[in-house]
Design a protein around this nucleic acid. Structure first.
Length: 896
RNA sequence: GCCCGCUUGGCUCAGUGGUAGAGCACUCGCUUCACACGCGAGGGGUCAGAAGUUCGAAUCUUCUAGCGGGCACCA
């Protein structure tokens, strides 16, 4: 057998995915057990324009770990993949392409443009699905969905019509967030507030029929052209006289009233606020309260309208600002300008400053839907957020303050709103144009040109992808899904809306749990972003360290924010190599061996200590990993596996069993040892598989044995793959603390001797004698039974054990559990002073601890109030330390 | 402004009422028949600061400081 010394991840990554996919291992139908429990996850659909970034890799790793784990446990698992049509992003992408051909989308017309988008999607979209294959994601590709698929579009229309018929969707003329660059309205969640260093302009408005004036402060002087009032707080003494007065609006021939409104904060600015109902959300509300005129002075391109007056019409809003300020200055009405920092609303996508405008749009009334979600949280604490803090509270607070959702967008790419207009202006909402014609009784219909917010279709994702509104088998089987794995930043945009829509249309939650992943920051603690260019490309990391190593790093991120560091991936790359070489050793010594699960499923006192010990460790590991995964403690699971494999299996078990396994002569005993070793390895590979799919599959297939018999019974008849092998159960019968204690005593002894060798500079090849004095009989018998192991691993020529220690004065010594003592005779190598000093230092450490513990025990309160168990534990510890210090004293005395 | 999180060895992070942990880095020694992406042995932390609760606090409470995040209509 020829196995390279170094693991080559690329080779394993190329060899298995295609076969897994072709064999249908990812598909839910692979499970033949009709009674199998169900586990399902829908993927947060990445944008069709997107390519894989670290955030995806992170989420996908967690989802794949869970899916592979549950699949190995025999669950009927579905991890459903798909993509989002990503309205604006995709439209922009194709628009940019057209621009290269010196075309605009208007040159093509709507129909041609949409065709063009589909062509683009077919040719260059969905890069991410190819990259997911590299990740090893075990998604069911036969169920892949796209939010613009016909069946999903049908679900969108169905939902729209039902909500409209219930009066929850309505069309209205209201103030909205408008992006002058993207030429569409945006929801509140797509607007980001950025701090901005700006100016606060103090403008004076003359009072009609008087030489007085009122000063208002504003950050946006250009909007004064659309002012229709000035508001003051009704309780503000300073302006009491002015209430009801009329002001002359400069640069315009209009007169505007002074109104009283509680909204105005007398403390801020001058206490008088200019009111521009058409261009500010607060002013809009005030305008509604006071029945003020709404004068739009800025248009959808952020240019001033005719209504702004001849001097300003056609100017850009910022040019207009300058001009307004100049004119006020000329008129002597500019009181002052002060520096002022405020927050400005920007389009999250293109960073253009949002223009609040009054516009006719479609809205979804949220209060009833919101209550469904809030009730679920209040009654059942669902969905269960992991971690609960802070997400549960943030989610709840957000719902409590939820406002109506602007769902229409002025785009071409997306689900066109299923609303039609008759020539006389009647609105017909229907599932199809045919239905609309029937309802309207005419064929002369025009469909609303707008499309729906991308997040509207995403909100339906957990049930639309499973066939809703049809009552499909999939929907029945997989809804509600088990868990949603997602990043923090779309809890409002997506998670909350899925909960509301799921409750509304399925009458049930879309998922039980929401696992919120942490964020991967750059090495300086900054968020990774395209614009900053500080992102780390997961594909490059895959190339450099391998997919499995990267996955292990990502899984151990869990739900905290961490700075990216290649070193950590490197150490997992080393771990993969360690696994490879451990397997290499097993395979090089596998003649006569075959995987036999029964050799690890039962113990037996006839087994050697190290064999019973590794079974105990193996089962404890299975137990701990299962518990960790049940609570989404990925980091814990990874650490447990890492230390089991490296420390327990490689550092100790392989070394302890090596003598038997590498024996020259082929004997039944050797075969048994080899079989046991390879079977433990096989179990370890299974435990690791959800995290490291490639290396585990690659090695597993090389192990000698009847692989098809190792599959979980739910997968009877499937081709052999570790993916479908049963995840190891924790057999509590085999978890044996007594055995672990005994093995630990042997390990401690070996470590103490190695320490002496190292401290005394004994050459690695040189054999020493080990003399042990152990008053405790049990310890003596444990050590006696393992003298071969001890002499091999501590490189000793002889090991002698007695009740008391009889060693030459010129020995290096160490003290063990229960006051046992070990000595290594080193004639001529011992500097007695130095040795005494070394021992005193050791003793001192113990004494420090003893002082602390005795102080605690001396406290009468402790004995009274602490649990008896803790007190006993402390006493035992003190007595062990006492035994050991006594031994130290004697040891030191012997050296005098 | 309101809410929340973080602060543990040089670095990146676990732990979360009862003896301070890992990986990397560091020191020393090793071509020991799976692995130098390795083996063996070490050094290094009064767990941000203060007060409190408790028999006992890195862990719970309060305050302070620094860093980070979310929400909010302050012109």
């Amino acid at each position: 057998m020829d196995i390279p010394k170094q693991y080559d991840p690329k080779q394993a990554e190329q060899n298995h995915y295609e076969r897994w996919e072709k064999q249908g291992f990812f598909a839910t139908e692979i499970n033949r057990d009709p009674k199998a429990p169900v586990f399902s996850i829908v993927i947060p659909p990445p944008n069709v324009t997107g390519s894989l970034h670290m955030g995806h890799a992170l989420q996908h790793t967690m989802m794949d770990v869970l899916t592979r784990y549950k699949r190995m446990c025999g669950h009927r698992t579905l991890w459903l993949p798909g993509m989002d049509h990503a309205g604006i992003s995709t439209q922009l992408m194709v628009t940019r392409e057209l621009k290269k051909e010196k075309l605009t989308r208007h040159d093509l017309g709507r129909e041609m443009f949409i065709e063009r988008v589909w062509t683009w999607k077919k040719e260059s979209g969905g890069q991410i699905t190819r990259q997911m294959r590299r990740e090893g994601a075990s998604v069911d590709w036969s169920r892949e969905k796209f939010t613009m698929d016909e069946d999903l579009s049908r679900a969108v229309r169905e939902v729209f019509v039902r909500l409209y018929e219930e009066g929850l969707i309505y069309r209205g003329n209201r103030i909205v967030n408008w992006c002058p660059n993207d030429q569409t309205v945006l929801s509140d969640l797509e607007v980001q507030k950025d701090p901005q260093a700006g100016k606060l302009y103090y403008l004076q408005y003359p009072v009609k029929g008087s030489d007085k004036h009122v000063t208002v402060a504003t950050t946006r002087p250009e909007t004064m052209l659309g002012d229709t009032a000035v508001a003051v707080n009704p309780a503000d003494e300073r302006y009491r006289d002015l209430l009801g007065a009329t002001l002359v609006l400069p640069l315009s021939d209009r007169e505007i009233p002074v109104v009283a409104d509680e909204f105005v904060d007398p403390e801020f600015g001058t206490g008088a606020v200019k009111v521009t109902p058409a261009h500010d959300p607060n002013d809009y509300d005030m305008g509604v309260r006071h029945n003020l005129e709404q004068i739009a002075v800025i248009d959808t391109h952020a240019k001033m309208t005719e209504a702004a007056g001849a001097d300003f019409a056609g100017l850009d809003r910022y040019q207009a600002r300058t001009k307004v300020v100049e004119k006020f200055e000329e008129l002597g009405l500019l009181e002052k300008v002060v520096d002022y920092e405020f927050s400005i609303s920007k389009c999250e996508r293109c960073k253009t400053v949002i223009e609040p405008l009054i516009s006719t749009q479609w809205f979804l009334q949220m209060d009833k839907l919101r209550d469904l979600a809030l009730d679920l949280m209040a009654r059942e604490k669902k969905p269960r957020f992991v971690p609960a803090v802070p997400h549960e509270k943030v989610y709840t607070n957000w719902l409590e303050n939820l406002r109506d959702w602007t769902i229409s967008r002025q785009l071409w790419w997306g689900h066109q709103i299923p609303a039609w207009y008759t020539p006389d202006g009647q609105v017909i909402v229907a599932r199809s144009e045919d239905e609309a014609r029937q309802k309207a009784g005419t064929h002369e219909l025009t469909q609303d040109p707008d499309v729906l917010d991308t997040w509207f279709s995403s909100a339906l994702w957990p049930f639309s992808t499973l066939g809703w509104p049809e009552k499909t088998e999939d929907l029945k089987t997989f809804y509600p899904t088990s868990v949603l794995v997602t990043a923090r930043d779309i809890i409002f945009l997506w998670v909350s809306r899925m909960v509301m829509m799921g409750l509304k249309f399925m009458g049930d939650r879309p998922f039980d749990d929401v696992f919120v992943t942490g964020t991967i920051l750059d090495p300086h603690g900054q968020r990774m972003s395209k614009t900053k260019g500080n992102g780390v490309d997961p594909l490059e990391v895959f190339d450099k360290y391998g997919v499995d190593a990267t996955r292990l790093k990502l899984a151990s991120v869990g739900s905290t924010d961490v700075r990216w560091n290649d070193k950590q991936v490197e150490s997992y790359r080393n771990f993969a190599n360690k696994i490879w070489n451990a397997a290499r050793f097993c395979l090089l010594n596998s003649e006569g061996a075959t995987i036999k699960p029964e050799t690890v499923s039962s113990g037996g006192s006839d087994l050697a200590l190290h064999d019973r010990w590794i079974l105990s460790r193996l089962n404890k590991t299975a137990r701990d990993v299962r518990e960790a995964l049940a609570d989404y403690e990925f980091h814990e699971a990874v650490q447990t596996l890492y230390h089991f494999f490296w420390d327990d299996f490689c550092d100790w078990y392989i070394e302890l069993t090596k003598a038997e396994v590498t024996a020259e002569e082929a004997t039944p005993k050797r075969d048994e040892a080899r079989t046991r070793l390879i079977t433990v390895l096989e179990q370890a590979l299974r435990l690791l598989h959800p995290f490291m799919p490639y290396i585990t599959e690659d090695l597993w297939l090389r192990l000698p044995g009847a692989h098809e018999k190792l599959l979980h019974q739910a997968y009877d008849g499937a081709q052999p793959t570790i993916m479908l092998a049963a995840y190891p159960e924790a057999n509590s019968q085999l978890i044996d603390d007594e055995v672990e204690w005994q093995m630990q005593a042997v390990i401690d002894l070996i470590s103490r001797v190695r320490n002496i060798r190292s401290e005394m500079n004994i050459k690695p090849g040189e054999r020493v004698s080990i003399l042990i004095g152990a008053p405790d009989e049990k310890l003596r018998s444990v050590l006696s039974a393992n003298t071969n192991q001890i002499s091999r691993l501590a490189r000793a020529s002889e090991v002698s054990i007695g009740e008391t220690l009889e060693a030459p004065r010129a020995s290096a010594r160490a003290v063990l559990v229960g006051g046992a003592e070990v000595a290594v005779p080193l004639e001529g190598l011992i500097d007695f002073d130095q040795e005494r000093q070394r021992l005193r230092k050791e003793k001192e450490k113990l004494q420090n601890e003893a002082t602390k513990l005795e102080g605690q025990l001396a406290n009468s309160q402790f004995a009274e109030r602490a649990p008896a168990e803790k007190v006993a534990e402390l006493r035992a510890r003190i007595s062990d330390i006492a035994q050991r210090t006594a031994q130290f004293d004697q040891t030191i005395a012997n050296l005098e």
